[in-house]
Computed example of a mutant assay.
Amino acid sequence: MMKKKLIGGLMIATMAFSSAGAVSAENIGNLNGMNLSNMDIDTALKLVQAQRQQLLDSQFQNQTNNARQMDMLRNQSLTNKRNEAFDVMVNFIKRMAYSRSSIIGNMR
């Protein structure tokens, strides 16, 4: 009886981590189709821990991919700003050169 309660508690915790949805009487004691109630406690715990670690790894991978995408967007934005600043500076230098040549031309 104690074993079934422990396994049921582990399954509820596992489903909470995996956002598997509502827990029904049919899926308590089952882990991806494996019946945990027929296993010894060590094997059942190892299976639950393995699935939990797998879920955490996949979540970390998704966060890593999202962070990479955000870094790429930041880099693209900074590159665009640098190019825009460079264009403003080039236009300023061109106007200054034109003004200088116009002033010199008017002095002659």
Rank of each mutant, 00 (worst) to 15 (best):
M1F: 08
M1S: 06
M1Y: 09
M2P: 03
K3Y: 02
K4M: 07
K4C: 03
K4I: 04
K4V: 08
K5H: 09
L6R: 07
I7C: 01
G8W: 01
G8D: 05
G9V: 01
G9P: 00
G9H: 07
G9F: 03
L10R: 00
L10M: 15
A13W: 09
A13P: 00
T14P: 03
T14E: 03
T14D: 02
M15R: 13
A16S: 06
A16I: 05
F17Y: 09
F17M: 11
F17R: 07
S18L: 07
V23R: 01
S24D: 14
S24W: 04
S24M: 10
S24R: 08
E26K: 13
N30F: 15
N30M: 15
N32A: 15
G33Y: 04
M34N: 14
M34W: 08
N35Y: 13
N35T: 05
L36D: 01
L36N: 08
M39N: 03
D40L: 00
I41P: 00
I41S: 04
D42L: 11
D42A: 13
D42M: 11
D42N: 08
T43S: 11
A44M: 02
L45Q: 07
L47T: 04
L47V: 06
V48Y: 05
Q49A: 14
Q51Y: 10
Q51C: 08
Q53G: 06
Q54F: 07
L55Y: 05
L55T: 02
L56N: 04
D57T: 08
D57R: 07
D57Y: 01
Q59F: 03
Q59G: 02
F60M: 12
F60K: 13
Q61K: 14
Q61G: 01
N62C: 06
N65D: 12
N65L: 15
N65E: 14
N66L: 10
A67K: 05
A67R: 11
A67I: 05
R68P: 00
Q69L: 12
Q69V: 12
D71R: 13
D71Q: 15
D71A: 15
M72T: 10
N75W: 02
N75Q: 15
Q76F: 06
S77H: 03
S77Y: 08
S77F: 00
S77W: 06
S77P: 00
L78W: 05
N80S: 13
K81P: 03
R82I: 11
N83T: 06
E84C: 03
E84H: 12
A85C: 01
A85H: 07
V88M: 08
V88E: 12
V90T: 01
V90D: 04
N91H: 04
I93E: 06
I93C: 03
K94R: 11
R95M: 15
R95V: 02
R95A: 11
M96G: 05
M96A: 14
A97W: 01
Y98W: 13
Y98F: 13
Y98D: 15
R100E: 09
I103K: 09
I103C: 02
I103T: 08
I103P: 01
N106V: 06
N106T: 07
M107E: 14
R108I: 14
R108T: 09
R108N: 10
R108A: 10
